Simulated assay, not measured.
Amino acid sequence: MTDIDPKTRTELEAAAFRALVDHLRARTDVQNIDLMNLAGFCRNCLSKWYAAAAKEKGLDVGYDQAREIVYGMPYEEWKAKHQTEATAEQKALHAQIHQH
């Protein structure tokens, strides 16, 4: 494996994150519950991780602001435009997978 300097590594990781966010913005048909059931994370998780990373850097980026960055619009607007009611099957799978 090629050695990558830390600055370049950060730039590549940032580019990959932006590509993932762009992909999720384009795939509004993919619901968060589907992401959670298949991958164990969703757009809201990305938002929480973004806000936590900002906090580690001493920046005041709250969860709502981070969600707007990830969703590309205010969360309530995204929900109204794109979120559908989870099916009984989706809910059952989520409950089975995410037993706490």
Results as ranks from 00 to 15, higher is better:
Lys81Val: 03
Leu35Thr: 01
His82Glu: 10
Val70Glu: 00
Ala54Lys: 04
Thr2Arg: 13
Gln65Cys: 03
Ala16His: 08
Lys55Val: 01
Ile4Val: 13
Arg43Trp: 03
Val61Ile: 08
Ala92Phe: 01
Lys57Leu: 09
Phe41Ser: 11
Ala19Arg: 15
Pro6Cys: 10
Thr28Asp: 15
Gly58Thr: 08
Thr2Cys: 07
Ala53Trp: 04
Ala92Asn: 02
Phe41Gly: 11
Phe17Ser: 02
Tyr75Glu: 01
Ala54Thr: 02
Thr2Ser: 13
Ala53Asn: 07
Ala53Thr: 02
Glu85Asp: 15
Ala19Gly: 11
Ala26Asn: 10
Ala19Val: 12
Arg25Pro: 08
Leu93Lys: 13
Tyr75Asn: 03
Phe41Ile: 08
Pro6Ile: 07
Gln31Cys: 11
His23Tyr: 15
Ser47Gln: 04
Arg25Lys: 15
Phe17His: 01
Gln65Ile: 04
Leu35His: 01
Ala26Glu: 12
Lys48Cys: 08
Pro74Trp: 08
Gln90Ile: 10
Asp34Cys: 09
Gly62Lys: 12
Gly72Cys: 12
Met36Ser: 11
Ala53Phe: 02
Lys57Trp: 00
Ile4Gly: 03
Trp49His: 05
Lys79Ser: 02
Thr10Tyr: 09
Cys45His: 08
Ile33Arg: 02
Met36Thr: 10
Gly72Asp: 11
Pro6Gly: 06
Ile33Trp: 01
Asp3Thr: 08
Met36Leu: 15
Cys42Asn: 06
Asn32Met: 01
Arg25Asp: 07
Thr84Gly: 10
Val30Leu: 12
Val30Pro: 03
Thr2Gly: 06
Tyr75Cys: 02
Ile97Phe: 12
Ala51Thr: 02
Ile97Trp: 11
Ala26Pro: 04
Leu24Asn: 05
Glu68Met: 08
Gln31Pro: 07
Val70Met: 00
Met1Ser: 11
Trp49Tyr: 05
Tyr50His: 05
Asp60Glu: 13
